[in-house]
């Protein structure tokens, strides 16, 4: 079997977070060298994340409220002695709904790829302010002056990049590890504190620029970062797992990646001259 063939055998294990670190590192090295495999891996990761948007089938609250009574009636009809069943005193669910294990693997995979490929493209080939203005013009009238929009774009991009590094460290931290020192918590806390301090001003600027979704993303990130910043030095693994689940339940990494991809896509798209004859494209983000 060719090297690419052997590598492809590892895709599923990697995407679902079931690959051991040594082979994961080997796979990543191969993906760095082989654009074909990298493209295939990236496409599979994106498909998995898209499939994660599937809606739950839910007949509605009224149905669920009566579910147990119906079950008890059926048990009685079937001659099964119905259990004595006081309603639970406390909610069973954890503060954050637990996501499947794959969510961490796939999000991590896409995040790593995006970090290595898309972000790299963004930062290495950053569009100069003039071009940025044209891109903004494709989406219609911008309410943000070009220079400040560019500045806000850079600040937002840097903020998301730094937040992602923190989140990736957390996501990739082995929950089965016995030693939390591997997480380098003091450093994570320090950076998180700095990011929390920046969040307020950034949210205000994004609000002024009417970038409501980015504003919401920064607000979601802020909540997670506050939790990290407030972790005690002797934090136990369950605290870390709760934060991980919180980040996953909000699809934070996925949203950051989408934001980056969208901006990369906007900047890589051939720029049509704005004017009456210009084709109407999907409105681009102002920043």
């Amino acid at each position: 079997m060719s090297r690419c063939g052997k590598t492809k055998d590892l895709f599923l294990d990697s995407l679902y977070g079931e690959l051991d670190p040594v082979r994961e590192a080997g796979l990543m090295r191969h993906l760095d060298e082989c654009p074909s495999c990298r493209g295939e891996y990236e496409a599979m990761a994106r498909t998995l994340l898209t499939m994660g948007r599937k809606a739950a089938v839910d007949p509605g609250r009224e149905y669920w409220d009566g579910y147990f009574d119906k079950l008890e009636r059926r048990m009685a009809a079937d001659g099964v002695s119905a259990p004595s069943s006081p309603a639970p005193q406390a909610p069973v669910r954890a503060p954050f709904a637990r996501l499947p294990r794959w969510a961490f693997g796939a999000a991590g995979a896409v995040a790593l790829l995006a970090a290595g490929i898309l972000i790299g493209r963004l930062t290495l080939h950053r569009v100069p302010p003039a071009e940025n203005t044209l891109a903004a013009g494709r989406g219609g009238a911008s309410v943000v002056p070009a220079a400040s929009a560019s500045d806000l774009s850079l600040r937002t991009s840097r903020y998301l990049d730094r937040s992602k590094v923190i989140l990736l460290a957390l996501v990739n931290f082995d929950g089965g590890a016995k030693d939390i020192a591997g997480l380098n918590l003091p450093r994570q806390k320090e950076v998180s504190q700095a990011l929390v301090k920046e969040a307020s001003a950034l949210k205000g600027d994004l609000k002024a620029a009417k970038e409501r979704q980015l504003e919401r993303l920064v607000a979601d990130l802020e909540l997670i970062l506050v939790q990290i910043a407030n972790l005690k030095a002797e934090a136990d693994l369950s605290s870390v797992e709760i934060i991980k689940a919180g980040a996953a339940s909000k699809d934070i990494l996925f949203q950051i990646n989408l934001s980056e991809m969208r901006r990369a896509d906007d900047k890589n798209r051939p720029v049509a001259k704005a004017g009456p004859g210009a084709p109407a494209g999907k409105p681009a983000s102002k920043i």
Binding site: R46, T50, R53, E211, Q213, L214, R216, L217, F254, Q255, L258, S259, M261, R262, R263, K282, P283, A284, S285, I287
Partner: peptide
Amino acid sequence: PAPSGPGG
């Protein structure tokens, strides 16, 4: 199309 995310 990719699911809508922030920024657009």
